[in-house]
Design a protein around this nucleic acid. Structure first.
Lengths: 250, 250
DNA sequence: CGTGCTTTTGAATAGTATCAAGGCCGGTGG
DNA sequence: CCACCGGCCTTGATACTATTCAAAAGCACG
């Protein structure tokens, strides 16, 4: 249970000060003044979520922003007949709940894919930080701008790609986001076939078929949920015809 | 005619000061201090684009932000074998080129659907405005946040919708963005079948088929490119099963 | 009044989703 | 330890949807 794991790490919050946080990608650490880092360190909430737990649900009232200190999270939205759509994947240093900024309720939910540690800042603290750290506001605006570019490019690609192409694109995205295991070279994330389907907008059967196909072609090796990209360039060739912008997507 | 309108407005720039601009939705007018409105009024560039002209091309170096003073624009991106994808539609008061903020080149191009008048602010002016108008930066960030929400919801819907549903959704979007003609109730925008296909990710034939189908069902009336929604509620029922958020999409 | 472009419709084909069945694996309880 | 159970993965057959190709009709424009 969540409470158990929570018990196992009761000392973590007091342990790490924002200033010494290992997460070099954290927006707060990067763009808030030292004074504000101290203020935020005091008002933030540091919590642990076990694998599969919801950090927040679609439709929840918005209380603030989440920053992943360490972990892996899927951002989901309920679709047709209890189908889930995975809107985005996130890991260390990524922001969660930023879609809610300016809205009443979260348009999406967030579920951990692995045990994760997450910092939370409530609306009041965030707004104070905006007012007192123009640099923070500016950089967050730039972050949004970049996210918007990525999402729109994704929208464009997905509109015209075949399933084979979408799944190839998905594998490259997973590599980009989570990286590969140093030892065996497999992707640093284990998604079920259904989750890959939720990412690409299809069903588990189709994903299974395409992955088998990729394996037969020598593009990947798979062992249950662990997938290893044997030839990233060849996988990219599958989607090269869409002239996609590598920086934007991967 | 285009030429007529052009002729009739050669003096527009000197005529209208930002402070008196009819466009109440303009971000600059809403969120910049009076002092800055004066500064921006001096450094902005006001220009006219005839129907079908490019305001900027995909891949152009980024020079600044565009604000539509009056007109209709499609934001496009080249896809597979000279297929175009329409990323977004924009009209009076909307911003163009904001996806470029923080990037080197525009990831999309912008083409006018009708004769349009557009204000342009270069990077230097925009950045000065950011530094001196925290409110402006903040509001623009909120704008990005809202755009991101909309785009991600769209991504989710499109992933699971049938063509019939996508085209129904598209018609409701057109109503939302451009509105309906006071006189005959038809949509205030005339898109070709191919353009509707570029919006929904299909081809002109399919669009033609579905529109004919809608007409036979009494949902719409069509006369060439002019389309009239006869029963918006019934059209919404087509996509209601996706439980989409009306505020986000329409 | 042609010419070229858009729209419409039809027929054949390809791509996906759905349904169904069997295999594999890990966990549980006898 | 082994049998059983349930969940996930795989594969095949089938039905459906969407794309492509082709051709005719409608329309705008010079």
């Amino acid at each position: 249970m969540a409470t158990n794991s929570n018990m196992a790490n009761p000392y973590r919050k007091s342990d790490v000060h924002c200033m010494d946080c290992s997460n070099q990608l954290c927006f707060v650490q990067q763009f808030c003044s030292p004074t504000w880092l101290g203020i935020i360190n005091e008002c933030r909430n540091y919590s642990f979520f076990r694998k599969g737990e919801y950090i927040f649900h679609e439709g929840d009232r918005i209380f603030g922003l989440y920053f992943i200190q360490q972990g892996k999270v899927k951002v989901v939205s309920a679709g047709l007949n209890d189908r889930m759509h995975i809107v985005r994947l996130a890991t260390d240093g990524h922001i969660l709940g930023h879609r809610g900024l300016g809205a009443e309720t979260y348009p999406v939910g967030a579920v951990t894919l692995e045990d994760s540690w997450v910092c939370f800042l409530d609306n009041a603290s965030i707004n104070d930080a905006f007012i007192n750290n123009p640099k923070f506001t500016y950089e967050l605006m730039m972050f949004y701008s970049a996210e918007l570019r990525k999402t729109e490019m994704r929208l464009r690609y997905l509109a015209h790609m075949t399933m084979r192409e979408k799944i190839a694109e998905c594998l490259l995205c997973l590599k980009k986001i989570f990286g590969e295991n140093k030892e065996d070279g497999s992707l640093n994330v284990a998604l079920s076939r259904q989750e890959i389907a939720d990412l690409t907008g299809t069903n588990a059967e189709q994903v299974s078929r395409e992955l088998t196909c990729f394996e037969n072609e020598g593009l990947i090796a798979k062992d249950g949920k662990r997938i290893k990209l044997l030839d990233s360039n060849a996988i990219f060739e599958i989607i090269a015809c869409h002239k996609l912008n590598k920086e934007l997507v991967f």
